[in-house]
Simulated assay, not measured.
Amino acid sequence: MPEITREQVEHLARLAHIQMSEEELAQMPGELEEILAAVEDVRAVATADVEPTSHPIALHNVFREDVPTGMLTQEQALDQAPDAEDGQFKVPAILDGE
């Protein structure tokens, strides 16, 4: 794997509009090389017979069917409301004149 240079890090930082200190510019090539080495390790294991996945285990829908039960009538829903009008909850206006 080719070595990442400070100049390459400076170029990437400019492209990403990231300001980096001198210390960060000196440290980043080594860190990027470690990341690329880890990616290379994964690439070595990923063969044509391994199907790409986004999760290590298969996911399935864990939600139950949406079956409405035990609904309130309009009168029951409005029974405890502080204020109601024409079969609806009445709330203070929050928009001026709209």
Results as ranks from 00 to 15, higher is better:
Pro2Leu: 05
Pro2Gln: 12
Glu3Pro: 03
Ile4His: 03
Ile4Asp: 05
Ile4Ser: 06
Ile4Ala: 05
Thr5Leu: 05
Thr5Glu: 06
Glu7Gln: 14
Glu7Ser: 14
Glu7Trp: 03
Gln8Asp: 07
Gln8Val: 06
Val9Leu: 04
His11Phe: 13
Leu12Glu: 15
Leu12Asp: 13
Leu12Val: 07
Ala13Lys: 00
Arg14Met: 05
Arg14Ser: 12
Leu15Tyr: 01
Leu15Cys: 07
Leu15Ile: 14
Ala16Ile: 03
Ala16Ser: 11
Ile18Pro: 00
Gln19Ala: 15
Gln19Glu: 13
Met20His: 01
Met20Asn: 02
Ser21His: 06
Glu23Trp: 04
Glu23Gln: 13
Glu23His: 07
Glu24Val: 12
Ala26His: 08
Ala26Asp: 15
Gln27His: 14
Met28Leu: 15
Pro29Gly: 06
Pro29Ile: 07
Leu32Cys: 09
Glu33Gly: 02
Glu34Tyr: 12
Leu36Cys: 07
Ala38Gly: 10
Ala38Asp: 07
Val39Trp: 14
Glu40Gly: 04
Glu40Pro: 02
Glu40Ile: 00
Val42Tyr: 10
Arg43Met: 01
Ala44Asn: 15
Ala44Thr: 07
Ala44Ser: 08
Ala44Arg: 14
Val45Gln: 10
Ala46Arg: 06
Asp49Tyr: 01
Glu51Tyr: 07
Thr53Gly: 13
Ser54Tyr: 12
Ser54Met: 12
His55Gly: 02
Pro56Ser: 08
Ala58Asp: 12
Leu59Ser: 08
Leu59Asp: 09
Leu59Phe: 05
His60Leu: 10
His60Glu: 15
Asn61Tyr: 06
Val62Ile: 11
Phe63Asp: 10
Phe63Thr: 12
Arg64Thr: 13
Arg64Phe: 14
Arg64Pro: 11
Glu65Pro: 02
Glu65Trp: 00
Asp66Lys: 14
Asp66Leu: 15
Val67Trp: 01
Val67Leu: 14
Pro68Ile: 08
Pro68Asp: 05
Pro68Gln: 08
Thr69Tyr: 09
Thr69Ile: 08
Gly70Trp: 03
Met71Ser: 13
Leu72Gln: 04
Leu72Lys: 03
Thr73Trp: 03
Gln74Gly: 09
Gln74Thr: 12
Gln74Met: 11
Glu75Thr: 11
Gln76Leu: 02
Gln76Ser: 02
Leu78Asn: 02
Leu78Cys: 02
Leu78Lys: 02
Leu78Val: 03
Ala81Pro: 02
Ala81Gly: 03
Pro82His: 03
Asp83Ser: 10
Ala84Gln: 05
Ala84Asn: 02
Glu85Cys: 03
Asp86Gly: 05
Asp86Lys: 08
Gly87His: 04
Gln88Met: 15
Phe89Cys: 01
Phe89Pro: 00
Val91His: 02
Pro92Val: 08
Ala93Phe: 04
Ile94Met: 06
Leu95His: 08
Leu95Lys: 13
Gly97Asn: 12
Gly97Cys: 04
Glu98Cys: 07
